Computed example of a mutant assay.
Amino acid sequence: MDYVNLKGVRVPALGLGTWQLSDAQCADVVRAGLAMGYRHVDTAQAYKNEDQVGLALADSDVPRDEIFLTTKVWHERLEADDLKRSVDESLTKLRTDHVDLLLIHWPNPEFPLGRSLEALAEVKARGKARQIGVSNFPVALLREAIERHGADLLCDQIEYHPFLSQKPILEFARAHDLMVTAYSPIARGEVAAHPVLTRIGERHGKSAVQVTLRWLIDQPNVAAIPKASGEKHLRSNFEIFDFKLTDEDRAEIDGLLGDRRLVNPGWAPEWDPA
């Protein structure tokens, strides 16, 4: 396993995403992933599967302190008291007294950002979250959170894959000692048949998906959380630590970067230019 090391925190660079996993399938996938060697698990209140993730954690032989667990507060629950209540609900479902990373899932201008960040910091101070961060925050909101409100953030979780440049956020993150966690890292499967990624994979005896995940976690401060619906894809995603991309490979992948955004709901903020 490779790691992102920031602010005294060691985060497995490859995590297990659980978006769209539910019921027994979710618990089975998380259980299998932990048995396989995954130690970074990502969930959220909005995924409605925290209870299944918690069940898998409880069933696993892996000690809780070896697992980096992330959950997120939904954008409609960012009023301070409601945020704190929602965290307690998440911890109950997850069967743990803390998460390793707690994120604001989406920004919401209806709630003053400073107050939400204060509540997040209070949750951390009470030991219910080891680290705090945000998700889907463009540079302007990151700057407001850190420079105006003094928030001590570890992470911004964003959509990031070979078809979506996130250069402004990556540059800001590296300048401010932030981790970027890439969700939808394989562009909802679109990378799998891409000719450039497939050709690079053939050079290494790997798939286009494996090439993409390797490209992501090779980047400074970047982790990736691909979802897998079963053990076959779990294992394939995990088998990326036995090869290295060349400078030529990386240059070819960088040449694909554009503005292909797959996640853009009505409540999304104004994004940074690609």
Results as ranks from 00 to 15, higher is better:
36 M>T: 06
215 W>I: 05
230 G>E: 13
61 D>N: 14
209 V>Q: 00
150 G>A: 03
218 D>P: 08
193 A>H: 15
32 A>N: 10
142 L>C: 13
204 H>D: 03
45 Q>E: 15
132 I>D: 00
56 A>T: 14
94 L>V: 06
251 A>V: 07
69 L>I: 14
61 D>Y: 06
22 S>E: 10
188 R>V: 10
217 I>R: 09
32 A>V: 01
151 A>W: 07
75 H>I: 03
273 P>A: 13
247 D>S: 14
22 S>N: 06
130 R>A: 14
125 A>L: 07
145 A>L: 04
153 L>H: 06
134 V>S: 13
60 S>L: 04
63 P>C: 11
102 L>Q: 10
121 A>V: 01
124 K>W: 00
221 N>Y: 11
67 I>R: 10
25 Q>T: 15
176 H>R: 15
264 N>Y: 12
244 K>S: 11
152 D>N: 11
232 K>F: 05
77 R>C: 05
67 I>K: 07
29 V>W: 10
69 L>C: 15
136 N>F: 12
113 L>M: 15
272 D>H: 01
182 A>L: 08
239 E>L: 04
190 E>Q: 15
187 A>T: 09
230 G>L: 05
36 M>I: 02
44 A>N: 08
91 L>M: 14
11 V>C: 01
178 L>E: 13
131 Q>P: 00
83 L>Q: 10
53 V>E: 11
23 D>H: 02
267 W>E: 02
47 Y>A: 08
36 M>F: 01
255 G>V: 09
272 D>A: 01
90 S>Y: 06
198 T>K: 12
75 H>M: 02
247 D>K: 14
128 K>N: 01
88 D>T: 11
251 A>I: 05
166 Q>Y: 13
261 R>M: 08
72 K>S: 09
237 N>A: 00
196 V>K: 10
194 H>K: 13
164 L>K: 15
12 P>C: 09
154 L>V: 03
110 E>W: 06
260 R>E: 11
227 K>S: 01
6 L>Q: 03
255 G>T: 11
249 D>P: 04
53 V>R: 09
100 D>R: 06
254 D>H: 02
92 T>D: 14
194 H>L: 12
125 A>I: 01
123 V>Y: 02
195 P>F: 11
84 K>M: 15
59 D>Y: 00
187 A>P: 06
80 A>W: 04
178 L>S: 11
72 K>D: 06
166 Q>H: 13
110 E>T: 10
37 G>T: 00
251 A>R: 15
47 Y>G: 09
108 N>D: 10
157 Q>C: 12
268 A>R: 12
238 F>T: 01
42 D>R: 08
195 P>K: 14
112 P>C: 09
225 I>Y: 09
68 F>A: 03
188 R>F: 05
162 P>C: 02
153 L>R: 05
224 A>G: 03
30 V>G: 11
14 L>G: 12
116 S>R: 09
214 R>S: 07
